[in-house]
Amino acid sequence: MIGKSDQTLKRVANAARGQRLTDSVLILPFVGAILFLLPPMWPRASEGVAAEGTATSTALIYLFVVWAGLIFCALGLALALKRFGVGRS
């Protein structure tokens, strides 16, 4: 009996973890899209005053860091999904 209830607990825990994982996978592109759409809202150089604007190099570093971060998250989620066999048909 104890074994059976343990199994049930395990199954519930697995289902909950699967739900958390799929939720994270679903949310990630939206996080990415929002982060990618931030730079246009940054200040721009006006009337040739460069100091007021945003430097291309700054934006470049920001975008690539966000990009790499997203890739890293996607990698982690892909590994977790595979490890726990979520979404296997």
Partner: peptide
């Protein structure tokens, strides 16, 4: 990059 003609962030929001 900072010294180049494209040193400034000038992308239009709409196009981005």
């Amino acid at each position: 990059i900072d010294a180049s003609p494209i040193s400034q962030w000038e992308v239009s929001t709409g196009r981005w």
